[in-house]
Design a protein around this nucleic acid. Structure first.
Lengths: 244, 244
DNA sequence: TAAATAGTGTCTCTAAGACAATATAGA
DNA sequence: TCTATATTGTCTTAGAGACACTATTTA
């Protein structure tokens, strides 16, 4: 806004806008991308599943509201939720996107390591992880938001170090590779992936003292932590075409 | 929003949010990136320069509002403004970003070919193009929005065909190269740039009948139109580091 | 002619793709 | 042992960087 409020503008004169946040919370579980959904306990869309979210409070920024909702829905402590990767995706403003009133929603994508089942707090009837590719039709325009979020995450993996946000503090290169394969839906060559990750300065950092983790059978893998870098130069491009 | 409006929620019970759009309209002029600013005619920030923008009307999407404001501020006809590249950037929601009331603003970046001076319609005291790197402190949080917009445009040039949006319908490769050089603030090798553009399928399309345009002196350059592609594979990376 | 800009060709080098081979664990 | 996973290494190839050289215009 910039051209000034119209002379004599009264904030209460218009039908007010409500502002909400919607969250696409992703995790990688069993080699599939999962998203956190809540079951709606009231109309409209009662009984449908939807992205978690809620109203932005009068003295709150959208990001603060998003972190608050995330903590409520996932049962994470405030400290943990505060450290998660949260990224503003875009804002959905279609005048008819909510049948009750004019609601503008700021959507966020959040990436979390594999977490326990959510407790389903707040006013939702239930909450659980869904395979991101096999959700039924969601409430409101949430199918669109979910698709946009998946696209964005996939694109960001190419040129950022974001994939580590899906991993626990210490992880193997195999786990990191599985993040890429799961989000992109492709298979990558392991030696080449390894070379790319290790030759990108600051992407990952070896855990000293060579601790190793067993992944069942096979040779134990070395552990790494996320490095200091945030961007990838050059990017780690998907095998085929891209989006957006 | 998804967890349902609180029981008995009254849209008028809270202090309402206002929703606005802010536009970072860029063009390349004289080898410098320029942005369209308007001078504020009323408090707050009276006399300061700001990004053009305005309120989203009750039955309007944010993008519709942005195109309407763009047409008003630039004096473009509705048809022309409707075809311009307009990209939602992000939404700014700090509770104190406007001293008058709670205003949430959806920011857009627009790319236009070099245009005549704007007529400064609407309620702005004046409107003109500014060198994007030499604006004074702007009103509200518009310095931040402008910086974010510049970053985003620069990043998108790498992996999209967006640069043609800065060019007229028919353009030379030299003009296209200057878009990259201006937005990125670097110099590119002409033969290499040419090779990259011409070997990327669908980036540009030669204008048949070999019409040519004189750029003063020197050999006339061949003309091209924007091609059908929207993404660049592989991307056209900046010489040095990246952002975001 | 000189200067300016457009366009071509070529050599080099980086990094990605393909994939063979080796290492170390559990069954 | 066999199987599974991790790790190393090597050959090939696509594409970017550097830059010499040619072409076509105006002054």
């Amino acid at each position: 806004m910039s051209t000034g409020v119209p002379e004599g503008y009264d904030p209460y004169a218009f039908e007010p806008f409500a502002v909400t946040v919607d969250l696409a919370v992703f995790t990688v579980r069993d080699g599939r991308l999962h998203v956190l959904l809540v079951e709606r306990g009231a109309d409209p869309y009662k009984g449908h599943w939807a992205l978690p979210g809620g109203f932005v409070l009068p003295r709150e920024s959208a990001e603060t509201a998003a972190r608050r909702e995330l903590a409520e829905e996932t049962g994470l402590t405030g400290g943990t939720a505060g450290a998660l990767h949260l990224e503003q995706l875009r804002t959905y403003t279609d005048p008819d996107r909510d049948p009750r009133m004019r609601v503008v929603s700021v959507a966020y994508a959040a990436l979390v390591p594999d977490l326990p089942e959510p407790r389903g707090g707040g006013d939702a009837a239930g909450a659980r992880w869904w395979d991101a590719g096999r959700t039924g039709p969601l409430a409101f325009d949430h199918d669109r938001i979910l698709a946009d979020a998946h696209d964005r995450i996939g694109a960001k993996l190419e040129y950022s170090c974001l994939a580590t946000a899906f991993c626990p503090p210490e992880f193997t290169l195999g786990e990191l590779q599985q993040v890429y394969e799961t989000v992109w839906g492709v298979e990558l060559d392991r030696p080449n992936f390894r070379r790319k990750v290790l030759t990108t300065p600051g992407f990952v950092q070896a855990v000293e003292g060579s601790p190793r983790r067993t992944g069942g059978r096979g040779k134990p893998a070395a552990l790494y932590r996320a490095g200091a870098a945030t961007a990838l130069h050059p990017p780690l491009l998907r095998p085929e075409g891209r989006s957006t």
